[in-house]
Design a protein around this nucleic acid. Sequence first.
DNA 1: CCAAAAGTGTTATGCTTACACCCATGC
DNA 2: GCATGGGTGTAAGCATAACACTTTTGG
Lengths: 254, 254
Amino acid sequence: MEEPTQGETMPQRGPQASAQTEPLRGPYVYEYPRPAVTVDIVLFAFLDHRLQVLLVRRRKAPFADHWALPGGFVGIREGLEEAALRELEEETGVHDVYLEQLYTFGDPDRDPRGRVITVAYFGLVSADQVARMRIRGGDDAAEARWWDVYHLPPLAFDHDRIIAYALRRLRWKLEWTALGFLLLPEEFTLSELQVVYETVLNEPLDKRNFRRKILAAAIVEETGRYRQGEHRPAKLYRFAARAVELERARRRSP
Amino acid sequence: MEEPTQGETMPQRGPQASAQTEPLRGPYVYEYPRPAVTVDIVLFAFLDHRLQVLLVRRRKAPFADHWALPGGFVGIREGLEEAALRELEEETGVHDVYLEQLYTFGDPDRDPRGRVITVAYFGLVSADQVARMRIRGGDDAAEARWWDVYHLPPLAFDHDRIIAYALRRLRWKLEWTALGFLLLPEEFTLSELQVVYETVLNEPLDKRNFRRKILAAAIVEETGRYRQGEHRPAKLYRFAARAVELERARRRSP
DNA sequence: CCAAAAGTGTTATGCTTACACCCATGC
DNA sequence: GCATGGGTGTAAGCATAACACTTTTGG
């Protein structure tokens, strides 16, 4: 239970926080010190046959020129997921992203500037969505790009830990739910889907068993179209609309 | 990534925060408003043949006289789990509690006093540990007691949601890991263990299959002692020390 | 000797795994 | 016609689920 002894929750002086995203400048005064709260987003995509993560390059200290997760401060009147979606929208222009709260990292020393608690989210975007992205560097982000999750550059803060944790969660998701399709374009072949699974799980899968399992789960349906390639054309599938609903129902996940 | 535009992370004025748990009084001044951050703990125990949750009665508004989860503010130099363990220790005297981060609840309207983000933990204690507890009401807690999780009183804030979520997690844990033993005293019979599972999962289990499953998993071992009752004595078991290790290894959980 | 909980095996079923060859196309 | 990836079935082993009776003790 929250202890009233920690003092007033609302600022005692300073302008009223407005409903707008960027509140007026302070000063905001509290009786006890407060941590800053941020959100960071581990956004995965499957691009160029590799599992990739979106990172931004920091412009300023600490960790200037290091790569970091996209994210930012939580607005004083803004929900956590809302903040994560806003940050993503601001930095990449994507919306309708599948996001899920990952974990909250609050080690007192994780940010050298002082106490910053970050609520990490993990998200999945399809190649289609990535193609539509208009990635903008923000005030503090010199640059943004996708990185192979198995070959990351040195990262700012504890973002390596956060990504490692997100990857664990993603693997678990793929093994136990049907969310893998969120990483693929609208139409895909079963071989493409298998490559996604193999890349994420980092292990080879038996083709026949994989196809049986996916088809048995009835999470995909044929589109009737074929992908023309250099060899025998492959049936194209899309994820059945009901698969998403099924997932939500079947969610036994913690 | 954290935006420097949100201003300094450390207080610009006010006393230096000390390393001690209770920092000096402010004022602490920030350029932008900051949420308060708390931890709340959903502590489960299996007592009196029922699954119970520890609640404290609030002394002050808002929700005066309502029941709420134990918890409190996160110290400015204190880790999140550290804060949760401290709050538990302060309010109940227990330590060595199994704690796990549950979820972070940050709806802007969840606390009528203003913006409070809470990192929820869930924990398990054995009947042994409960017996050794010395529950103290804190400054703001008039009283603390255990409540049957299926018959809770009206709760403060969004604590009903938090408990519902913790119960889902606990069920999942029992189905997929061997952590159920944390709810039992050091020695227990297989029937007692089965009752725990049935109570938490809220469904009857087949006695023979249950016993086979538990024994096959090799997570328990006979103590050689027997529980004398009104009927045929039952073998007493304890959890094999290695079971805990196995659990940590086997953790495929997200 | 009776009530009550402890304890114990077998069978059927479904799921997972391992495994090898033919098919359709582009060049 | 050949190289390449697309596509298919079956059998064995393993885990799960259903099911009923005997044993041991206290009163």
